[in-house]
Design a protein around this nucleic acid. Structure first.
Lengths: 234, 234
DNA sequence: TGGGCATGCGACCGACCAGTCATATGACCG
DNA sequence: CGGTCATATGACTGGTCGGTCGCATGCCCA
């Protein structure tokens, strides 16, 4: 947690610090990120930084668990479950995720960083807590899908983790391919983002939901010959 | 590429260096990994290291593009396409991937590192080349699946990337959850690996293929109401 | 025996890092 | 005015890093 001094800072100074920290942690891992760079770019002496935060980890933790989620909620607008069917809600969720990625690539990158491997135990604990929370939420969603009859009988643990990687890293990859750019270009550029329209996002979300719902098998194939001993689906 | 001196080294000395480099690069990213640590643990003076490789990147590149793929091929035994159907071959491929992950977690981790984000341009180029090669291979496989009629009509680019993340990071995550361990524990421990039997791997592979083939939708659901305007599948 | 050459080696260099500390500043209060 | 207290500041510390350099070692051939 930041020290009280941080919250008493003139807003311009505080924003400069936070914005530069977001840029730095979006581009580099926790270990690679440099406090000296953040401070220099925010035009805040390093000694002053330590009046605001305990240390580097304190800043990172606050960003990851407070500031970035707050900004993410602000963008997503607390939309929540907007009626319709399970699959329609999923498609909407995916489309909003792509919009967030395109409009706020730095925040999206920091959110996603929780899944990256790291050797530092403190950081690993932090990341794991975030990942687990996301998985719990998704698991609950899938359970509700099962109750509502939208989903067939599935291995819940397997499905949760596979779906999580599809709508997480998988979709990020798809979006980058659509933009024809690499992650670091998107983080740095402003106009690349306009290249993925809401219509196109919706189409990609629909295709992704179709994949999650019905798989890739040919229609006649997928039901006529149940995969390997009928284990799937039943 | 290593210098000639490296290949003239007494095998024990060379192996020590390579093994410690694999351990280090498996646990830490390129930037975080420390040559000093590798050299110290391999009991090779740093000055000597620079007789064998141009620099840190030279070692990393050789590991990533030569040594690790060589060891991976040695483990997978050039099995190649072993008859049977498209889906059966895919299941086999997935099972072998899980076996490699469990038996050689360090090598698997280094292979997978190519997908991690990094700010260093030289490393990014290296990683991108490896990822692209993997995607090309998978795309060709899927195209063959389409020709053979096993796959329905799909957005090939989307499908390639989604399948790649499912059988890559997704399955890694599933395996770690099965083992009840984190990546760094598996990298460090020997006996955790025995906890995922060939039978269990095969079951997970089958369930994963069922997911890729038929999705998660309930049987009556997935065909009765084509997702959103009939865009999927047809 | 002696010269040449591949290799071994560790002290050393400059850069960068996270974090500290002594001092300076300036607002508020009596 | 003098005193106190929150805050600002940048030089500094101790450490690690990738990479270099000059010297030592020991084998091969004359």
């Amino acid at each position: 947690m930041p020290k009280e001094t941080f919250f008493r800072l003139p807003p311009a100074r505080r924003d400069r610090l936070v914005d530069e920290a977001i840029v730095e942690f979006a581009e580099r891992s926790y270990v690679e990120a440099s406090l000296s760079q953040i401070a220099k770019r925010a035009r805040i002496p390093k000694g002053s930084f330590y009046q605001y935060f305990e240390d580097k980890l304190d800043l990172y933790r606050w960003l990851l668990t407070d500031e970035v989620p707050r900004r993410k909620r602000a963008f997503l607008g607390e939309d929540g479950a907007t009626g319709a069917s399970f699959w329609e809600r999923l498609a909407l969720h995916i489309e909003r995720g792509m919009a967030f990625l395109v409009e706020h690539p730095q925040l999206a990158r920091i959110s996603a960083a929780a899944a990256d491997p790291t050797a530092l135990p403190e950081v690993r604990g932090l990341h794991r807590a975030i990942c687990d929370a996301g998985l719990d939420e998704l698991r609950a969603t899938l359970e509700e899908g099962i109750r509502s009859g939208a989903l067939g009988k599935v291995n819940l643990e397997l499905a949760t983790r596979l779906v999580a990687t599809v709508i997480g890293p998988g979709l990020t990859d798809v979006v980058l391919a659509e933009l024809g750019a690499e992650l670091h270009e998107v983080l740095a550029s402003d106009d690349l983002r306009a290249r993925l329209s809401a219509r196109r996002r919706r189409a990609l979300a629909d295709q992704t939901v179709a994949f999650l719902r019905s798989g890739l098998g040919a229609p006649e194939d997928s039901l006529a010959t149940p995969p390997r001993g009928g284990k799937a689906r039943a």
